[in-house]
Amino acid sequence: MKAVYPGSFDPITFGHVDIIKRALTIFDELVVLVTENPRKKCLFSLEERKKIIEEVLKNLKGVQVDVHKGLLVDYLKKHDIRVLVRGLRAVTDYEYELQMALANKKLYNELEIVFLTASEKFSFLSSSLVKEVAAYGGDVTEWVPPEVAELLYEKLKEGNR
Rank of each mutant, 00 (worst) to 15 (best):
G87H: 06
G137E: 00
D80S: 15
G137T: 00
A101C: 00
K157E: 13
F122V: 01
G138W: 02
E110G: 10
L156I: 06
G138S: 09
I113K: 07
Y108S: 11
V133I: 13
S126L: 05
E110M: 06
V85F: 03
L156E: 04
L84H: 04
D139W: 06
E150G: 04
M100H: 02
E147N: 09
K157F: 00
G137F: 00
E150Y: 08
L156Q: 04
G87N: 13
L151C: 08
E132R: 10
G87W: 04
Y96R: 15
M100P: 02
Y136R: 11
A118S: 15
S127G: 10
Y108W: 04
Y136I: 10
V130N: 03
L129M: 14
A101K: 07
Y136F: 15
E154W: 04
R86W: 02
G138A: 08
K106F: 14
S119M: 00
L102K: 10
D93F: 10
Y96G: 07
K131E: 10
T141I: 06
N109H: 14
S123G: 00
L107R: 12
I113N: 10
E154F: 03
R89T: 12
D93S: 10
S127I: 05
A103K: 10
V133S: 01
E150I: 06
L152P: 01
A101S: 15
E110L: 11
T141L: 13
L107A: 15
